[in-house]
Amino acid sequence: MLPVVLARDLVKRYNELVAVDGISFTVRQQECFGFLGPNGAGKTTTVKMICCFTPATSGELQVLGLDVRQHPRAIKAQIGVVPQEDNLDPELTVRENLLLYASYFDLPRGEAITRAEELLAFVELSDKASTEVEHLSGGMKRRLTIARALINRPRLLILDEPTTGLDPEARQLIWQKLRQLKAGGVTLILTTHYMEEAARLCDRLVIMDRGRILEEGSPEQLVQHEVGREVLELGLDGDNCEEVLAFLDGNLNGHQVIGETLFLYGGNLDQLWENLKRSGYNFSYYRRRPATLEDVFLKLTGRGLRE
């Protein structure tokens, strides 16, 4: 099957700054593909190039089989974009926002009206249809932005940090809608710096930092491969870090020190922990927990995601 997005050696440079530094990736049909990374990693720039907002400095980029340089109109007609910041028309009502957006895609009026009602039902805003956008909550605006991006029945929906700034309940609802869309056959691309979001939604993802792709795979694969099943967090007491590591003698998948905390990525954590207890080292706290994507990121970059 033809890939939905194909990028090869994609570069975006702003004068001195290299925002995207030669990345290659493929997004397959009907998957949810994630770009995970801290602010400034190059996620948004990559997405902007896919949306035909920003021309690439060099490299190849095809969306739905079309070259972004040659066919921006044809590509934009078939994709939906949910931007990081809401850009609805605040003076207009919820329904008017959808109808106006439909007109940009040359949707006939009758079809636009039907489609708008369907989408309002889908994002659970039917009872707000006649409310002006400036009176909606943040979560409602997000849902409306998603509905608006779906007005042209896109084959690919691109979401740039879709739940940033939303409360947990609003976030859950958005996730639920996105899963329904995927089940309905829409390919999703999303950027996020929320581990949980990436883990729950993405079939595959790339971890980005400083314009480069560090690792690629499914969330489970990445965690399993890079970190293992579990993590042992130890609160360091003074500077006995080197000693502890020497004591463990490489019996690990890896480790990372962030501030006062030592993260141990385990092979056999049971055995490891028994040994440490007997060793007599002092730790201000310890915690054993399942490994997450955050650990993958920490291990790969030595930094947290939300710095």
Partner: peptide, 12 residues
């Protein structure tokens, strides 16, 4: 309002 960005995400 970022209206321009909303519009250039469509065929315009």
């Amino acid at each position: 309002q970022k209206t321009y960005h909303a519009i250039i995400a469509t065929p315009l």
